[in-house]
Design a protein around this nucleic acid. Sequence first.
DNA 1: CATATATGGTTTGATATCAAAGCAAATTCA
DNA 2: TGAATTTGCTTTGATATCAAACCATATATG
Lengths: 161, 161
Amino acid sequence: MAHGKTSHLTPEDPPLFTFFLEVSILDQLVGTMFERVLPNGITRAQFGVLNHFVRLGIEQKAPHELATIFQVTRGTMTSTLGRMQRNGLVSIGPDPADGRGKQVRLTEHGKQMREQCIAAIRPMITQIAPKLPLDRMPAALMVLQRIRRILDDHRPANPEE
Amino acid sequence: MAHGKTSHLTPEDPPLFTFFLEVSILDQLVGTMFERVLPNGITRAQFGVLNHFVRLGIEQKAPHELATIFQVTRGTMTSTLGRMQRNGLVSIGPDPADGRGKQVRLTEHGKQMREQCIAAIRPMITQIAPKLPLDRMPAALMVLQRIRRILDDHRPANPEE
DNA sequence: CATATATGGTTTGATATCAAAGCAAATTCA
DNA sequence: TGAATTTGCTTTGATATCAAACCATATATG
């Protein structure tokens, strides 16, 4: 090992890889932490959908819009919504204005489940939040958002909403 | 924020959820962006292992150590390493010092594959890196690391290596 | 109008991931 | 020493995720 090649630690390696690895690990930790407390078989993806409707007071939304919002493929959203539909969390009907499209709506059960999720998450959050560097997080969030936008623009087919 | 803490959008909702959702989306974008350019069937998880060995000049490492480093369960690491072994990227042998343990080593093919991966990633990185806010990322990274450590300490059974 | 292209949704096959349960070896402790 | 606990690894079953291929409907183009 250690050929004279000075570039085996290429310039792109340390800073960016470290950053992206940290993002990945943090995402995993947050994901498992959430899913440990979420009720029944609710996953983070499903909670994301539930929460989106309630938070924004939205009545109905098309699957492809949800896919764009959460940055997953339509196939992934098909899978998640299908499961939520089977579990009675959402109802899915045709879009009267577009023969191809569909409309997703939260059911009563879905709304109740969202409240249950919030209640289940709360203790964990209140325990952890005080220890987080809340003052530094807005700046970090802006960096993350900026990077996201840049990567988004570089996708092969960036789904312009 | 004019309403204080009486809102039904509990104080834990907007700031933290937004932050964690952004982390999640960024992770997804980075993951798919990497896997689109990585050779063959190499995934980010597999590249992570390959890269770890080479970057740190490590000869062999136990599966449970790798699991701790990448913050995945041992079961997940079993799966990834098994696939890498079947594809000739690593060799896995018994740990002579511990009858339960195993030792993972990169094969020649694994080392070459890591170089291929780096080469495959480079164009994407060199195209994107100049547009990233590199000056702000170290600070953001420190925030991410700090949050990671906090969450880590709050795991039910935090795997103290 | 007719063909071509784009868009919305689904399906398939592969990988990663977790939790939980299980087995085997090592360590602790009574 | 012998039993209990811990640790390392695997297996199983579920979910999420992607890319690619596919169908149906919409829109654009000639």
